[in-house]
Computed example of a mutant assay.
Amino acid sequence: MEPPVLFKRCVAESIGTALLVLIGAGTAAFNGVITASNNAATTLADIGVISVAFAIVVMAMIFTIGRISGCHINPAVTIGLAVTGHFAWKEVPAYLIAQCVGGIIGAMAIVAVLGMDGLHLGGLGATSLGSSTGYVQGMVVEAIAAFVLMFVIMGIAVDSDAPVNWAGLVIGLTVGGLIMLTAGATGASFNPARTFGPYVINSLAGGNISWAQFPVYVIGPIIGAIGGAVAYKGLTTKPQVVGSDPHSVKV
C-alpha cells in the first residue's frame, strides 16, 4: 500500500506534536499554576504525574498517527532516522517545519485551556536548565535522553525483527521514565519542537524565556538521536558474504 502523500504526513506530524505539547507540556504548566498558587515546591510526585501525561500522549499518538507519518513528532528523531537511511533527506525539512508549527499550536492550546495563568504562572511548561545545571551539562543530559529514546525507537519500531504492536507502549514508557530522570536537570525535553512551541508563545506574550538556552534543546537532542540510531544500526547490521570466499564480507 502506498504511504500517504507528504502533505498529509506533515499534517499528521503537526497534529501529533501539537497534542504532545498540549497534554505533556500543558500538564507541566498546570502543575506550575498549582505550585505557584500554593507557594509550594515541585515534588517528585508532581514529576511523576507529568511523566505519565507525556507517556500517555506519546502512546496515543503512535497508535493513532504512526501508520500515517511514522509518528516522529520530534525533529531529533526525524534527523536520526534520516542519518541511518530510514527516512528520506528530501522530506526532512517538511517534517521539521510541521513539527515546529505543531509545537506552537500546542502551546497556544495550553493558553486556551489554562488561560493566562498557564502562561504567567505555568510558563506553558517551557523547559529550562536547573539551577545547578551548567550549559554543557544540560546539553549532555539532553543528548543522553535522546540517545536512549532513539535507541529504543530503532529497536521496537524500526527494526524489521521487532515484536509487532508494542511500539506505542514501550516508547511511551521510555519517554515517561526519561522525564522522571532528567526533569530536574533540564526540564526533560529531548525534543526541539516541544521546547520551541512554548518558547515562541511565551516570548510573544511577554513571558520570561531565555532563548540563550534554546541551543541546549536543539544540539543535545540531535547529537543524542543520531548517536542512538547509529549505535543500534551498528549493533544489528549483519555482514553479507560476497562470492564463495568466506573471508570476503561486505558490511
Score class of each variant (00 low, 15 high):
C100H: 13
G115N: 07
G115D: 02
V101F: 11
L129V: 07
L96C: 06
G118I: 11
S131M: 09
V101S: 07
G134Y: 11
M116Y: 15
G125C: 07
T133Y: 09
T127G: 05
I97F: 15
V101Q: 04
S132N: 14
Q99E: 15
L96H: 08
Y95G: 01
A107R: 10
Y135C: 03
M108I: 10
T133V: 07
L121A: 11
V101K: 02
L119M: 10
A109W: 04
L124G: 01
S132H: 13
G103Q: 03
G123D: 08
A112I: 10
G118D: 11
G115R: 08
G122S: 06
L121G: 00
Y135D: 07
V111S: 05
G118E: 08
L96G: 09
I105W: 01
L114Q: 13
G106P: 07
G130K: 14
I105H: 02
G102S: 05
T127V: 15
Y135K: 04
L129F: 02
A107K: 12
L124H: 05
S131W: 06
T133N: 12
I110N: 04
A126V: 09
G106H: 09
M116G: 05
G118N: 11
D117Y: 12
G115I: 13
V113E: 04
G102V: 02
V113D: 01
L96N: 06
G134L: 01
D117H: 14
M108K: 01
A98T: 05
Y95T: 00
H120F: 11
Y135M: 12
